[in-house]
């Protein structure tokens, strides 16, 4: 497995760059993943990343896009709970990019 070293700490990632050990996640590794994904992290990005981490802690899975969109809408309002907003934040898909930055495993059933 490839390793990433940030600020003197080693992180194990899979071939596609997803963090292996969720409990290692911190803001340093999130920022590193964001640079890899060419995402400039704003407050809006962090809101989604933190939401995903909370969702994972509660349900032990990363949500499908449809489910994420609905759940974000419920929590943060309809102006954020829609595909347009989420894809503006994560142009290559909230599934792939936001989960990776949040340190979650690769989504189930994702091609």
């Amino acid at each position: 497995m490839p390793m990433v070293n940030i600020a003197g700490k080693d992180y194990e990632v899979d071939e596609e760059g997803y963090l292996i050990d969720l409990s290692q996640w911190n803001e340093d590794i999130a920022k590193y993943m964001a640079v890899e994904e060419k995402v400039d992290l704003t407050e809006g990005h962090w809101e989604v990343v933190n939401f995903l981490r909370e969702y994972y802690a509660e349900y032990q899975i990363a949500p499908a896009v449809r489910v994420l969109t609905k759940a974000i809408g419920k929590k943060l309002g309809p102006d954020k709970g829609n595909n347009k907003y989420l894809y503006e934040l994560f142009p290559y898909g909230p599934a792939k990019q936001a989960c990776k930055i949040a340190g979650l495993p690769k989504p189930t059933g994702c091609i």
Binding site: A62, P63, A64, V65, R66, V67, L68, G93, P94, A95, K96, A98, C99, P107, T108, G109, C110, I111
Partner: peptide, 8 residues
């Protein structure tokens, strides 16, 4: 999470 959701 799955981008497959967009598929019909």
């Amino acid at each position: 999470m799955s981008d497959m959701d967009e598929m019909d």
